[in-house]
Design a binder for these strands. Structure first.
Lengths: 201, 201
DNA sequence: GGCGCAATGTTAACGTCGTTAACACAGCAT
DNA sequence: ATGCTGTGTTAACGACGTTAACATTGCGCC
């Protein structure tokens, strides 16, 4: 019984179980005591690895942003416009696959912005991928050469808003069709969804 | 001292103070005990008027949706397109003026959808205004006659996403300029922000 | 090989919260 | 006057975040 007094690996396992808890039951269920129970450990033990509950949640969000960045970077299409829409769809797919994590990342329950520098950095890291793909699309002559700043804000707003509205069930059912994500993403582009057929690379 | 044993007006005052608490310190601070303290009343007294804390928060959200609807309905422009963009800007202005309320309304912390029928109804009531203005714009020949469903989803996603990203400080500072809201709203329209000059009614 | 220190875990305790049960007072209808 | 219904209070329970004090382990160092 004394052989496992030192857990040895608690930080990593705590993060894993916290992710599971978050995914299964939402942020409100990510409680230090519940997490401790899962890990067969007493609650104060967790304070050796996380300053407090907010730090734990922030750590989860950081991992979320890094994973989101990874998934956005995994999108690779030849055409710059295809790349942009592909990233938009990957973004939405991420949010829909992990709604509770996504809400934690963007729900605004976390702290006065700037309290967790890691978190801000991770967020910017994910944002940068989207930004880059817009720059690329502009450089390739797409998007009518509109100013990059507002374009980026609009594109991010669109995918973020769509992601949130769907995972919270705010959009009427008829509009939940899977393919709609693609359609909406393309609506941003001049000429609408049926512009020309740039479907095949 | 016994003259005020019955508060007489507690439901209304509780809602008012809860709104103040929400606006000033966020949803997490809207606690039954804190609210009771503000009202010079014991906590269990509130259970005569709200089934539990979630019901109180839901009531706040319901009022929020009704107020949002009112503000959207107050927008009146002659041109259907101006009307649509005006509504978008009013929507964003609402969120920015009451960030904590807006987060409560859309943060997804409330309930399995359908648990509070009032809330769903109030949400649809606000949504309907946006929906209507899009239908009107289509009827007036704008928006290239694109299908109304996806258009509405896209428009709502755009304003919702922009509202959330700005109130949470996720957009880089340079893009926070006040006038950007208008610009972004117009980006959805075919031809981009400088289509023609439909600025003056 | 033993020693000591730092890391990591436990126990006990405090204050806050949501919530409920039991009770107390007020006002109104009869 | 009486009693019922609405509304408020008191007391208590369990869960939570957090801290202080203490216990155990493992590793570097002699």
């Amino acid at each position: 019984m004394t052989s496992t007094y030192h857990h040895g690996d608690l930080y990593r396992q705590a993060l894993e179980q916290a992710q599971a808890l978050l995914h299964e039951e939402g942020a409100a269920a990510v409680t230090l005591r519940a997490l401790a129970r899962r890990l067969q450990v007493t609650a104060p033990a967790l304070y050796r690895h996380f300053r407090n509950r907010d730090s734990l949640l922030a750590a989860l969000a950081v991992h979320g942003f890094r994973e989101l960045r990874r998934q956005l970077l995994a999108v690779r299409r030849d055409d710059a416009l295809e790349q942009l829409t592909g990233i938009g769809q990957a973004y939405i797919a991420f949010a829909q696959a992990r709604p509770n994590l996504y809400r934690l990342m963007f729900g605004g329950q976390l702290l006065p912005r700037g309290a967790h520098p890691d978190l801000d950095a991770a967020g910017l890291g994910a944002f940068a991928v989207l930004q880059q793909s817009i720059d690329d699309a502009l450089a390739a002559g797409y998007l009518n050469g509109q100013p990059a700043g507002p374009l980026t804000a609009a594109a991010w707003s669109l995918v973020h808003g769509f992601a949130e509205l769907t995972i919270d069930g705010h959009l009427p059912d008829e509009q939940q069709a899977p393919g709609l994500a693609a359609l909406v993403t393309r609506l941003l582009l001049p000429g609408g969804p049926s512009s020309r057929d740039n479907n095949n690379p």
